[in-house]
């Protein structure tokens, strides 16, 4: 699947989850330089810019909005403490994504399997989403019959059945819209590993959600 299909989505929610383009990286660099010089407002701008993206990443890995908010605080606090050590060898969004992924994976290891699911509300814009329309119109079975909230529960349940590594690549690729190379940099693994994990995760998800995709 090409990521251009994601950019065709005109909804503002979807646009929040697009990967940072190169021009955005240049803007980030300016803000990072200012933050490194002690400009707290510049860091606030970075927080404003990356809060929606990182929230989506952490939320889809934890399926708990309270944990997500707490973790996001920890991520930005760590980034603030470490901003002067950021050398600019990678883009800022790769760096902040790496912090967020690592901290979330550590949190999930500590949390274990037993946790309380706390889901966000589904934006009503989903009904106008081309993917939603396509899926609902092309399917003759369960998806037409269940409501949006039931669909949300099933999707989250399927995601939580994946291992943490597989859930991470699915979140970064399918939900966040990052490219394989970008995921490779964020996770510190090869692109081949990313593709392999992604293939295996998709296959598992297809099994878990087979009644929706028939």
């Amino acid at each position: 699947m090409e990521d251009s299909s994601l950019s065709a989505d005109a909804t503002p929610i979807a646009s929040l989850n697009q990967p940072a383009p190169n021009s955005s990286s240049a803007e980030d660099r300016v803000l990072v330089d200012k933050a490194q010089a002690g400009d707290t407002r510049a860091f606030d701008e970075l927080v404003r810019k990356y809060t929606p993206k990182l929230y989506g990443l952490i939320y889809n890995m934890t399926s708990n909005r309270e944990d997500t908010a707490d973790l996001l605080q920890d991520v930005f606090a760590k980034a603030y403490r470490s901003i002067k050590r950021f050398m600019g060898k990678s883009s800022f969004y790769t760096w902040i994504y790496s912090i967020a992924v690592n901290m979330t994976l550590n949190f999930l290891k500590k949390r274990g399997r037993h946790h309380k699911v706390s889901l966000d509300d589904v934006d009503t814009g989903i009904e106008n989403d081309p993917d939603f329309i396509r899926v609902t119109t092309s399917n003759t079975g369960t998806l037409r019959e269940v409501g949006i909230h039931e669909l949300q529960k099933r999707l989250n349940a399927a995601m939580m059945k994946l291992s943490e590594d597989h859930r991470t690549v699915v979140t970064l690729y399918d939900v966040q819209g990052l490219q394989h190379a970008e995921i490779s940099k964020v996770l510190g693994v090869s692109e081949g590993t990313v593709r392999s994990r992604l293939f295996y995760a998709h296959r598992l998800l297809q099994t878990y959600l087979e009644d929706f995709v028939k």
Partner: peptide, 21 residues
């Protein structure tokens, strides 16, 4: 896996309350 990816992509609509940022 196109259909399953379309389904998973719908998770983008799970958003925190307005003014969260």
């Amino acid at each position: 896996f196109e259909d399953i990816q379309r389904l998973i992509r719908l998770k983008r609509y799970e958003q925190p309350e307005e003014g969260f940022t």
